[in-house]
Design a protein around this nucleic acid. Sequence first.
DNA 1: CCGCTTTGTGTAAACGGTTACAAATATAAA
DNA 2: TTTATATTTGTAACCGTTTACACAAAGCGG
Lengths: 365, 365
Amino acid sequence: MSTQGSSEKKPPNHAGQPRQSSLAGLREVAVAAHVSTATVSRAINTPHLVSPKLRERIHQAIDQLGWVPDGTARALATKRSYTIGAVFPTLTHGDFARATTAIQQELQARGYTLLLACSDYDLEQEFQQIKKFIERGVDGLILVGENHHPDLDKLLARRSVPIINTFVYSPQTHGTCIGPDNRKLFFDMTRYLIEMGHVVFAIVAQSVQNNDRAEARLQGIQDALAEEGIAVRPQHFAIGQWSISEGRHLFRQVMATQPRPTAVICGNPYLAVGAYLESISMGLEVPQDVSIVGYDDIEVMNHLPVSLTTVRVQSEQVGRNAARYLMARLEDEAIDIPFQCDTEIVIRASSGPPSRKNNPASLSL
Amino acid sequence: MSTQGSSEKKPPNHAGQPRQSSLAGLREVAVAAHVSTATVSRAINTPHLVSPKLRERIHQAIDQLGWVPDGTARALATKRSYTIGAVFPTLTHGDFARATTAIQQELQARGYTLLLACSDYDLEQEFQQIKKFIERGVDGLILVGENHHPDLDKLLARRSVPIINTFVYSPQTHGTCIGPDNRKLFFDMTRYLIEMGHVVFAIVAQSVQNNDRAEARLQGIQDALAEEGIAVRPQHFAIGQWSISEGRHLFRQVMATQPRPTAVICGNPYLAVGAYLESISMGLEVPQDVSIVGYDDIEVMNHLPVSLTTVRVQSEQVGRNAARYLMARLEDEAIDIPFQCDTEIVIRASSGPPSRKNNPASLSL
DNA sequence: CCGCTTTGTGTAAACGGTTACAAATATAAA
DNA sequence: TTTATATTTGTAACCGTTTACACAAAGCGG
């Protein structure tokens, strides 16, 4: 196996020439300030260990040379990259965009940098992205939901990268996730509608494929209804894409069935807006003819001719706390953040008691 | 200066114990596969230089040990991080979110990772974030606009980090920016309104503070109007925040002035939606009483009772091309992308010729 | 004035990969 | 067979920081 044995100490470098200015950054600063590299390093990272005189000289050298430390080398030496990876299903939904912004702000404030990827609701892709992040040496990970690739745990265990699941909360997994209790959210919303007298409910929602949050919300609706002995009829259950036009389409579809629903619960704000706009096209009165409620509060909901009842989730709070939590863990600080985030049912004009005339199952559209 | 001189070759490591499994990752794989570290490295990066037999053995060792290469170390050694930094003013506006998504997709497809920050339209903050990115060793940068911190060039020159400005295009700076020609965009839109017979124009827009794109668009309006000898009156010029409610407020404000505008050009989609929704509250007919046009196309604009005329910018295209451009430069590939991106004036129901009755400067609101 | 701590600084070995160069081996040409 | 050439593989020096350890100097109570 051992191949060569004779080479008797050749000059270390390739050719004889010292290779123009081969001094690396920190080293260069060190000679300029007539100190050792260790001292320069300390002057930046632990200034109190360096005498004021040298500190001064070093800083002078630094900005005289315009030196910017190499984070890569630092990361290698310290095994800390001050980098956090976040994988979101998408960025084009308001809540994730808001959370991302909050995360980035929070990280930045403490010197961390955000690595971002979008999995497009694909678990396999999410896994690959996480893997990449780990290769890149992220110190922590922010994910969405609790439903991940089966091999994830193994991967994380090896490097012991802390992780936090966002936009979910359940008492069982307390401490590993930050977000709303999705099930309870729609449970409460549904109760509100029940108490208002509604009996025939329709659901217009996005696919629950790889989306445990949406699934939990659906479950919340069904649980609340079940308590009253009510179930959502198949023809009142419409699943589709995430868009206004889809909302219009699905709303029209469920409203064309018998018995006609008096309350339509939408899985996201775009579907709700679509449903409402379609109700206008159909000449329906909201909420007299039908109540429409959504999930998540986007600004337009509050400004439509009939403002829309919805659930507000503090996405910024979710993002901020997730970031804080991770950083605290990394710095071994104690931290007390609420894992279950604030939510609020925002009751606006689009929901109300069903009108009498809708009770008899009759009438053509 | 030289302190010690005697130490006669002490054992290299601290205590005598070999420190449990001190073999670092790649080294560990190497011994497991009975090859040298160089060969392992080659097996991953340049497989064709390694005999199939060893390659096989190495890969076996790799996934038997579950090794994940350390990107930090790799980056240090190769001086390439396969990382791109992007600084956006915000993520909560649809166009930037879409562009970010496109960038990330494109980067991922070629093994790059995205670092993201939001400057909140603050040049100083942007500069700090860029600096941080450079410390982190990004291979390239994606920024928005052409207006950056004065020291930016110096900083970039030192490390020679390639950069691309997005969401802007002007012939003068061809090759350094990718986006729409913002000035021309609103120039054309204004011409369209002029040709329709409008004479009294109002502008409802966001602040142009550190926003050369918005500024260029305003200039486009003014240039087009100037050709006809028209100027926007001070009372028709409303600048504010970026929101629907602000759009409502500013719209009401400009509509309360004399002479009353027959066309309102909005600087972004939210302002346009707000303006339109306020027109409903005010009992105005769009476009008979007033034409409303916006910038950027968000879905709701096409679904409101009166759909809104706007300008569509291919933000995804901007993002994608920016990413491609950078990667091509980094890999020394030739690439032919359009620097000026596609745009389209989408004429919908909210714009039309001014009605006769609006001509006489009269009437109370 | 001497040992004893405290404080400040330097030396050099990591960190975990890549890669120039040399050596060994296989292949082709003569 | 011999020599020239191409192919594989190994050795060890980097990449630019940090940091354990050693040492010198300064401060101090006795």
